[in-house]
Amino acid sequence: MFTTAWSASPQLPAEGFTPNWSREGFWRQSVRQVVRLSAGGGRLRIRLSHAYGTSPVRLAGATIGRTAVGAAIEPGSLRRLTLADEIPARGSLVSEPVDLAVAAGDSVTVTLYFEAATGPATFHAQAFTVAYRGQGDLLDGAGADGFDAVSESWYFLAAVETDSGRTDGVALFGDSVTDGFGSTVGADRRWSDALARLSGRPVLNAGIGGNLLLNDSAWYGEKGVARFRRDVRGLAGVDTVVVLLGLNDLGFSETDDQPTYQPAPVVEAAELIAGHRELLRQAQGLRVIGCTLPPFGGSDHWGEHAAKVAHELAEWVRCSGEYDAVVDLARELADPGDPDRLHPSYDFGDHLHPNDLGYQVMAEAVSAVL
């Protein structure tokens, strides 16, 4: 039985706040992408997504291997993947399994070659690790030669699965805090990485930077209540989901100088609670852990209304009894001198996102209730 060992939630091609190749797509180019697995196994397969494509994408070939350094692949580990030559519009494609032994915590490198023009590419905007692009068919080269352009996004690649048979996977569902904004690029210091190390369980990141619970965004993904089935229920081997969403529903309406944040309706606590209840309904059969929003006082998301609703939502998460377990990040990450603000030791610098240490604290708090 196959278990998801790594995942990234698909997004509509867009620029947002991350320069990327999604709108231009690829033509006679190879794309090499590095991902860190949270489950081991002896066989691997990949899942590609073109969820936001209006026409099929022709795929000329794909390979996978254990990561060496940068764009280089460990000698002797490169494997050709067998899969259909087309990713359907608004659909996905799964490869046949290949034999390749990996352990939890290992990184693998997936290379895709597109001979024909893809058009705009379904992607995941914020990878916080480097992807590589080169001209021509570079599938069979284990070295880094030819990969002369870099990006910090993932393209078409939505999941890597192993034959571990694990059924205790944990999906983290959220926004940029879950996605890992503020963590050290290329160091695998998101709180999903830390939780995988602490718990020993497969941990899948279903965060999208800028994502909202209640409203779609052209830049930051479909609303949480709409994408939950695909981005959580669609992951193999998951029995637990951790919900941390609503920060942008509050904060975007407080920010008037960022056009990508618009439209941003002003929402009340009752609306956010209804959204959380919809996630709970969709998550039936899974263990669901609810998180209060981290402190964000002093950030560009903070304002009188956002503060009021954040406190009301936190009280509901803590006291309603509707979640199977609760992690109170509003308290775990707070500055003792000002509980509405992130502790200075945990603050990436924008008073909104944790740094590596803050993400470690989050992972420890969740690990304690798994």
Rank of each mutant, 00 (worst) to 15 (best):
V130H: 00
Y155F: 13
E115F: 00
G174R: 05
F173I: 12
R166C: 14
T122N: 07
S164K: 06
L100W: 06
L100I: 02
A89K: 01
S95P: 06
L138C: 11
A127G: 07
E152M: 07
T178R: 10
A121G: 02
L112I: 04
V130E: 06
A131E: 02
P75L: 06
D148W: 01
F147E: 08
D188L: 06
H124P: 04
R197W: 02
E86P: 00
A187W: 00
E74F: 08
D85C: 05
G134Y: 01
Q126N: 15
D99A: 15
R79L: 13
Y113R: 04
G136K: 11
G174I: 05
L139E: 11
G182Q: 10
A187V: 03
A149H: 07
D99C: 03
W191E: 08
D148L: 08
A125W: 04
D140V: 01
A196F: 10
G186P: 07
L83W: 01
H124Y: 08
T184D: 13
G182S: 13
S176T: 14
G76Q: 04
A187G: 04
G119E: 03
A117K: 04
D188G: 03
G186M: 05
D148S: 10
P88Y: 00
R166E: 15
A144S: 14
P75F: 02
R197P: 00
A127R: 00
L100Q: 05
G134H: 05
V130K: 03
W191R: 06
G169D: 14
E74H: 10
S107N: 14
L138Y: 05
W191K: 08
G200Q: 11
T111I: 02
L93T: 08
F173G: 12
A187Q: 13
T109Q: 02
A159Y: 06
S95C: 11
V108H: 03
S77K: 03
V94S: 14
S183P: 10
V160L: 14
H124L: 07
P75W: 02
T111A: 04
T178P: 09
I87H: 01
P97K: 13
A142F: 03
S95F: 07
R197V: 04
A159N: 09
D85A: 14
D163K: 09
Y155R: 07
V160D: 14
R90V: 00
S176E: 15
L112H: 05
A116G: 00
Y113P: 01
E161Q: 12
L138W: 07
